[in-house]
Design a protein around this nucleic acid. Structure first.
Length: 501
RNA sequence: GGGCCGGUAGCUCAAUGGUAGAGCAUCGCCCUUUUAAGGCGGUGGUUGCGGGUUCGAGUCCCGCCCGGCUCACCA
């Protein structure tokens, strides 16, 4: 018999003992008077004298440590990531509750009533007078001082990671703060939140390979969206002048420390502005999100101090010249010269070559939060041309810590030009570019009803969260990152065999 | 997909090619202010899976599975 079987058997037997004492092994509602963080916040600094007269509390949580000492014992309850010690003495709780205390395991949920006191060693604790059993754990918790280290188990069983590693919990609390800060700010700017299709008959708004699914009743294939962009701009056509959406995009591409197949994107569109207006708004949004999430705009990330109070700004050509490392550093004349560009890239047009060179030589060097603007038209099929240079578009991306975290442009609102851009993309597709944009005639039709001058932007929530929480891998900011399915777990068989034993 | 690294008890980790171990957890006994509680005594292993080499494999070789990092692709 394996240990696991043995443990399960012991725990299941214990459930019957708990029932025999008259408690529910899987309890019901428990009306606590305080959360554990509230008690630590409110009384954590109080001396023993200040805890008289008695402060009565009623608290629930998961047992994380257990120290039996004959006719008394100590334990720590954990709730919302924080721990509070309880002291259970036979004289104080009575025979029946003390029998229950002898049956609890690390990992069980219990509720206690009692009063606050300080132990001989000074730790704020609850002197328990009544115990309630709330829920039984059948499996043993991770080890008490190393926590859960195995990366694979941490991702597959995130609930254990969250219980055992308080810092992991903090990352996801910070993530929630970032999102709520962005929502609050956009609402304050009169943006309204909308939801657009995740399942789309045509995919667009980015360059990526899609996931394909099928609707049975309509008998049609649909794509999981790679971006919400084209739907959001249809809404601006319809008079929703300021819209945003925070939701998942799906891209059927590689996994890495910076890529998960489903990831969260904020996209927002503002009528009557352009990319310059969006740079100002971006700077404001990011600085305030940093302040709201971590209390400062000075962010330590992998040994660098990032300053989110402002965005550095370079045109793509300037960025290539300025951040080029090593030999062959070009001049501004070089990066404007198609011959030089095509010599330094295997791409077939000057614009694609410039983007290619930028991505290979510059992107990872952009550590400080930086805006790179003025992109070649070839790689930007939905952006508006620069009026003085139609080979470039009014587009920028935001980089920080060597990662792209945002992408924005003045939206192309001329349907005739949009049709030409789509046709240019189709010819790229015919030359083998699988990620070139599809023709979306309904979108052209929407533009034909007139899209006002508009600026639009996307911000990658996962990557922004990585930077603001100091995480090196995107998997550390996504609760359940995509992994290959694991092998047999074999718990159901064990439970079945032990059922009623 | 390529390269590198890893997978040993529930958890965290050891183990020159020579009897698979420790701490925590778990079980029994003792203990009414402990806190990595303590004391005494136990249980627990298909060393990821499958082959091979060898008198003998956790260890060496081959294949596969899972994961991490990295390169490529991408945001």
């Amino acid at each position: 018999m394996s240990l696991e079987d043995d443990l399960l058997k012991q725990r299941l037997a214990r459930i019957r003992e708990i029932e025999a004492l008259g408690y529910r092994p899987y309890g019901r509602r428990f009306d606590f008077s305080h959360t554990i963080p509230e008690i630590l916040g409110g009384y954590g600094a109080k001396t023993a004298e200040e805890l008289t007269p008695e402060v009565r509390v009623s608290v629930a949580g998961r047992l994380m440590t257990l120290r039996h000492m004959g006719k008394a014992g100590f334990a720590h309850l954990q709730q919302n990531g924080e721990r509070l010690q309880i002291y259970v003495k036979k004289d104080a709780v009575g025979e029946r509750d003390f029998q229950l205390f002898k049956l609890v395991d690390i990992g069980d949920f219990i509720g206690v009533d009692g009063y606050l006191f300080r132990t001989r060693t000074g730790e704020l604790s609850i002197h328990v007078e009544k115990l309630e059993f709330l829920s039984k754990t059948l499996l043993s918790m991770p080890e008490k001082w190393h926590g859960l280290e195995d990366v694979e188990t941490r991702y597959r069983q995130r609930y254990l990671d969250l219980v055992a590693n308080p810092d992991v919990r903090k990352v996801f609390v910070t993530r929630a703060r970032i999102i709520s800060s962005l929502r609050r700010q956009l609402e304050a700017h009169q943006f309204i939140e909308v939801e657009t299709p995740m399942m789309q008959p045509l995919y667009g708004g980015a360059a990526a390979r899609p996931f394909i699914t099928h609707h049975n009743t309509l008998d049609i294939d649909l794509y999981l969206r790679i971006a919400p962009e084209l739907y959001l701009k249809r809404l601006v056509v319809g008079g929703l002048d300021r819209v945003y959406e925070i939701n998942r995009n799906f891209r059927n591409e590689g996994l890495s420390t910076h890529h998960n197949p489903e990831f969260t994107m904020l996209e927002f569109y503002q009528a009557y502005t352009d990319y310059q207006g969006l740079i100002e708004l971006s700077q404001e949004l990011l600085a305030q999100a940093a302040r709201d999430a971590v209390g400062t705009t000075e962010i330590e990330y992998e040994g660098h101090k990032l300053n989110f109070s402002r965005l550095e700004r370079y045109s793509m050509r300037e960025a290539v010249v300025r951040f080029w490392q090593g030999d062959g550093r070009p001049t501004m004349e070089d990066v404007a010269n198609p011959e030089w560009l095509l010599r330094n890239s295997d791409k077939s047009t000057a614009g694609e070559a410039l983007t290619d060179i930028f991505e290979r030589h510059v992107e990872e060097k952009l550590i400080q939060p930086t805006v790179v603007y003025d992109y070649p038209v070839e790689t930007s099929p939905l952006s508006k041309n620069k009026p003085d240079d139609p080979a470039f578009v009014e587009r920028f991306e935001i980089y920080a810590a060597g990662m792209e975290i945002g992408n924005a442009y003045t939206e192309l609102n001329d349907p005739q030009e949009q049709r030409r851009r789509f046709e240019m993309q189709l010819s790229m597709r015919e030359r083998g570019d699988e990620e070139a944009h599809q023709m979306d005639e309904d979108y052209v039709r929407a533009l034909a009803y007139a899209l006002p001058p508009t600026g639009g932007e996307g911000i990658g929530i996962d990557r922004l969260t990585m930077i603001l929480t100091g995480c090196r891998s995107i998997r550390d900011v996504i609760l359940f990152p995509l992994l290959r399915p694991e092998g047999p777990i074999d718990l159901v068989r064990q439970l079945r065999e032990l059922d009623g034993v």
